[in-house]
Amino acid sequence: MTSPDTLLPIPTTTRRDWSSDQEVRWCPGCGDYSILAAVQMLMPDLEVRREDTVFVSGIGCAARFPYYMNTYGMHSIHGRAPAIATGLAMARPDLHVWVVSGDGDSLSIGGNHLIHAMRRNINLTILMFNNQIYGLTKGQYSPTSELGKVTKSTPFGSLDHPFNPLSLAIGAEASFVARTHDMDRGHMLEVFRRAHEHKGAAFVEVFQNCNVFNDGAFEGVTAKQVREEMLIPLRHGEPIRFGADARHGVMLDSQAGARVVDVAEVGEDALLVHDESRVDPSVAFLLSRLARGPSEPTPIGVFRAVERLEYGSEVNTQIAAEVDSRGPGDLAELLRSGATWDVR
């Protein structure tokens, strides 16, 4: 069911064309606003039609996202967006299906669907807003909250060891894994574009500030004044360097680990050259674990982007091959496909 005007040029649109008429109802100052703005700004540049674009979400603050996009959309139930989006993407490979989710929605109640969507490599663009807290239920710790965190449900401090979302995604065989943050529109635009262009399941963690229940969770790495020293931009084909005058870098050590080093000490040749297309996920996994939390230098950008068979198109290939070799199904013939006999 593609648009009847598929063959016509895609009309030029502006950010406004991608904004719905619904009033945005996040808390003032929420990081979600800047992510929404980035997505709405990106869409006119993607050469896609609004009617061919679908945003699917689960439950949580982030999950209100589809209501604000002038596209097709579904605000579904907690954790199930990847499953629903999988069915839609399988049924309708002509569509661009986005999943917008939070850390609770994706990694707690919906953890199973998320890992299987990535493993299956179905064509979805998954944006996971990580604010390390449950916002909509008013401030319980989340599966990405740090150990010891005091919240309404952990008055003595959290005992739950957190997930590292990117390590999880890489472990789940994701073919595209990236991280960005809500304080840098340009970086979001670039990462979201790459995720959209990826064929298969693309997973993007977005550091997102919840100014009501977990204010400043990522300030230690994303605040303007520390960013240069605390964020490590990953650029494909380039040695990994960061900091003022690019004086820091990342290298692999002899103990099969990755660590931050002073370039002056080790020399540029010792630095790890970032290769997002490396089939073996080990180095991407090491990079995902370089920082133990948002208080240490943290890599952002595309960690991993590899080509792998995309589930939805493979399904269609199987169907087409069957129809090609044996012709389309015939119902009357199907009913007679077992042993039959005639009664006169």
Binding site: S76, A83, I84, T86, G87, A91, N112, Q318, I319, V323
Partner: peptide, 28 residues
Amino acid sequence: HKRFGVRTLQAEDEIAGIGAAIGAAYGG
């Protein structure tokens, strides 16, 4: 029965089974 254009998804769990079906229903 792929010849009939049937798409089957052996989902990761029961919830994903119906979830995917809801997504496909939305897609017509």
